[in-house]
């Protein structure tokens, strides 16, 4: 009986080790394949263009989901669609410079950030994006994906009964990832642009500092 039990335990252990080895082997094999696929300079130019569109799409969703005048259905859809632009596990890091010069950083999963943006305690919100988006060159990472960063500037104004109670300008650095993903519909692999982590830094606060906590 003990011998039988030991055999089962041993077999389970061997299968566990084997499965973890297989996973590692598959990962390195995949990395090797993507390593051999390179984007041409014209492809990269095209991706730079498409990144601009993707970033604009994100900005439009932000504007919509922050707008209290829009129907709930449309704001919910904007939230859902905005999330689809992101890589799984993307985070938003918000940096605030306190009056004493010290820095405060808060990290939130993107879904939580978007949900909070939708439910800010203002009667009216105006979000404007400046027509500036700087996108750095794409660089290939050891995993075969291409990486870049886009910078966008957002002006946020929060009202309570037509009175401005909060205003800030934030600079957002958005990580851009171009990944080779399987398109099940066409049954082939395609390069796709995703947004990744975002680092947001408040650059100018023109209204009451204490109210800024609502955005964190």
């Amino acid at each position: 009986m003990v011998k039988k039990l030991l055999t089962i335990v041993l077999a389970t252990a061997i299968s566990l080790i084997a499965s973890s080895q297989t996973k590692t082997a598959v990962t390195s094999k995949q990395a090797k394949i993507t390593d051999e696929i390179n984007l041409s300079p014209s492809d990269i130019e095209l991706f730079k263009e498409q990144t601009k569109q993707k970033v604009e799409e994100f900005q439009q969703y932000i504007v919509t989901l922050g707008n209290k005048n829009e129907p709930a259905e449309k704001r919910n859809m904007a939230e859902k669609e905005a999330l689809k632009l992101f890589y799984n596990g993307a985070q938003m890091e918000i940096t605030t410079i306190k009056p004493d010069g010290s820095i405060q950083k808060i990290n939130r999963p993107m879904e939580k950030y978007l949900a909070r943006l939708k439910s800010l305690p203002f009667t009216k919100v105006i979000i404007k994006f400046y027509d500036i988006a700087y996108i750095s060159e794409f660089t290939k990472g050891p995993d075969g994906k291409y990486y870049s960063t886009a910078t966008i500037i957002q002006e946020f104004t929060g009202f309570t009964n037509d009175e401005i109670v909060y205003k800030d300008v934030t600079k957002k650095e958005v990580e851009i990832i171009v990944d080779l993903v399987e398109d099940k519909f066409f049954n082939e692999k395609r390069w796709k642009i995703f947004l990744g982590d975002i680092k947001a830094t408040e650059t100018k606060s023109t209204e009451t500092e204490t109210k800024s906590t609502v955005l964190k």
Binding site: Q60, G66, N67, D131
Partner: peptide
């Protein structure tokens, strides 16, 4: 028609600074 928010195109001083 009920849009109160936009992606701003016109330049203001902030925008010039950021550029």
């Amino acid at each position: 028609n009920c849009y109160s928010q936009t992606i701003v195109k016109q330049e203001n001083q902030n925008e010039k600074n950021f550029l």
